[in-house]
Design a protein around this nucleic acid. Sequence first.
RNA 1: GGGCGAGUGGCGGAAUUGGUAUACGCGCACGACUCAAAAUCGUGUUCCUUACGGAUUGUGGGUUCAAGUCCCACCUCGCCCACCA
Length: 825
Amino acid sequence: MQRYNPKDIEPKWQKIWDSEGTYTADLKSDKPKYIAMSMFNYPSGAGIHIGHAMNYTISDVKARFKRQQGYESYHPVGWDAFGLPAENYAIKAGVSPQESMATIIPDYHKQYKAMGWSNDWEKEISTHLPEYYKWSQWIFVQMHKHGLAYQDSRMQWFCEQCQTVLANEQVIDGKCWRHDGPDDPLVQKKEVKQWFFKITDYADELLDAIDDLDWSESVKLAQKNWIGRSEGAEISWQVCDQEGRTERASFETFTTRKDTLPGVMFIVIAPESPLLDDLTTAEHKAEVNKYREESALLGEVERQENKTKTGVFTGKYAKNPFNDQLVPIYVASYVLGGYGTGVVMGMPGHDLRDREFALQHKLPVVLTTAVAKEYEDLNSLDVWTGAGKQVNSGQGFDGLSNKEAGDKIFDQVHKAGQAKPKVNYKMRDWSVSRQRYWGAPIPIIDCPKCGAVLVPEKDLPVILPELDDYAPSGDGRSALARAKDWLTVECPKCGGPAERETDTLDTYIDSSWYMYRYFDPRNLHEIFDKQLVQKWEPIDFYNGADHATAHLLYARFIARFFKKLGLVKEAEPFKQFLFNGKVTASDGRMFSKSKGNGVDPLEIIAQGYGADALRTYMMFAAPLELWTKWDPQGVPGTHRWLSRVWNLVNEYIDQPSADVPQETQAEINRALHAMIKKMTEGLEHNRYNTAIAATMTATNDFYKLKTKHFGKSEVWQKALEGLVACIAPLAPHMSDELWHLLGHSASVHHDSWPKHDEKYLIQDKVTIAVQVNGKLRGEVQVPTGADEDTVVKSAKANEKVASHLKDQTIRKTIYVPGKLVNFVV
RNA sequence: GGGCGAGUGGCGGAAUUGGUAUACGCGCACGACUCAAAAUCGUGUUCCUUACGGAUUGUGGGUUCAAGUCCCACCUCGCCCACCA
């Protein structure tokens, strides 16, 4: 008998699957459809790591399970090829990113195949190819045409040394990621003109649909918080001088605590607010301007670490629309310009930040909600933000609950035309401009006469030209600013001389619609065939360990936009999403090349354990949502189990035929069907670890049963086929080998999933636990379906139970059918 | 600071949602095979106790015939967001 040797059988089957197109999905098939996929890969050149191995195996197992169940199952593959790391790699290595992708991606092909993933390679996509990014640009054009794309100037991080704009994630501890030495300066904010997608138009829709999603709860919550809807009121304030004479200027503030309006002691405006000048007197101008400049230079990190509530007085006042009280207006950096109106009413009685500010600037504090004793010291930093009785607000308000008082206060101010209901969101519009080379050029032509003009659809794609130097141009624009030939064009509107936009599209655009392109990857005439996509959408199963907000929110946004365009029918692109855990080193830290604590999946395969054992271990170690620590003993352990299965089947093949008595047959069938049941339910509900445990239990059972009667027989044949089929999603290579050994000529990977039958699980006897006062005192065997009297009688007859019941009066007997009896004495 | 989640053997983790706690795997120990080792097969393995027996799901309390599971308070750890008015 041959020993289990993955090194032989794995490459053998990979070749066969490849040449037979085992995993090619027929998108026009009449079978029920299923698509399982993981977030596609960013090809960095480092090859796959254990995190990839984890992610892609999860969806691969799912796709295989469904394929075996008879679905037309599609497990697509693609590459999120645009982006900064590839560009920086190209700058360093002196090759074009196009060239480096051309060598990196084929390398990944080998690695994916070595993992035994059932990808459909015919339909592979990559976002950096013109055939793909043409449609990313097309989306921009459609957004623009529907009024959902606009241009605006916003503050952005800027590195003086690189002379370029930085993305948030390129700012590390307040410094540029490439200039983070002790002598390097902090990054600064600079105003940059950029394109935005109006995702905020969809804020409510995106929020409301979250509850119904079959997604990991943590992601649903993260999205809710990210959208950050909050309901409140917008209050109008009249600006006054110090004598209370009204001036022309006015402004609004947003609040969720209408009841605190009587307790407003001051107004605070964000330094970046355009209103600031109007709210500043001539004599305070110099001081305010100085403060504004200082806070603009302040790094975000400094602002976070140093939460001191700095600020200066602007010299002006505002009149409280509720009680006409005059309150001073301050400028302070703790107020965010981008949220609400950028102006805040300071209610130091019930807001911690306002309280800190008031104490620091010696401003009075008044409570409007009666609070518990320990909060009465107005000089402490404790703040009561909870509910209570209204106080200090005048007749008709005091004594009400603060909620009721708030509504009444709002009504009064509302009638005076000084307040209205308002909903605010934390979510901002999606900035889609990147001042970088390696992305899809934004299809815009800047004409000195006509302004920003869309590239006509017939001229798409705007091809990204190859350059000699990919480093940013130095003036805040991408390397494309140096591509003079490419840059200069005629304006599509007036025909005059114009220049192309040098920004490229955020790569999140590429990844927000790729799932649809999987169904029609080579279409040159339209983004995809609507009918095909509508047959296959939504994605049945999607998983990943990152991007809880950005990517998944953008994809939902684009899906809604596509629905509006009539391209898709479903507003939600992903029916089910599993936010799986990551694998860390045994010390709990992240694996990383620089720490030298990496685990290389390909190395594990090469050591002789094989992809099947690696895959099985990763799926078995813990529930999929949990973060797991890498256990170096784990893969050898699953390899041992696979060997046991291998040996069992091979031993069977060599046996002569045998008569298996009914009783043993029943035991074999019970073990088999219990396994099928648990495995089917486990894979269906993403509880892989316990499902795998059930197949191990069945293996152990079969080992015990084979010592009784073993040999060629229908019952053993079916049992081993069932075992092999159930293992196939996890260990596809070994399973196909064993499946063929068991006499099949077709692959195990199609239409082979066994069905369990409850009738085999019924036993003629059941074990009943017997408790006395809730403590386990014995067990009795009774016939299945025995009535209560019979069970209680035999429970009392049990020796140990009887000794505990001796000289006791049974006050109560609890009987749980088929489970236990509890005597209360 | 806010939100979410989790604390079960030496370790990763099970427990049909209130009904026999510790499935399955790792590790460890012992045995078989072997001149020997590896591999394989088998047995055992929560803790205390020679035993009888007792204790046990982070800690303390509660509800219940019965609590890992439900309720209250506390402790510890992890993750995400973080001056969002």
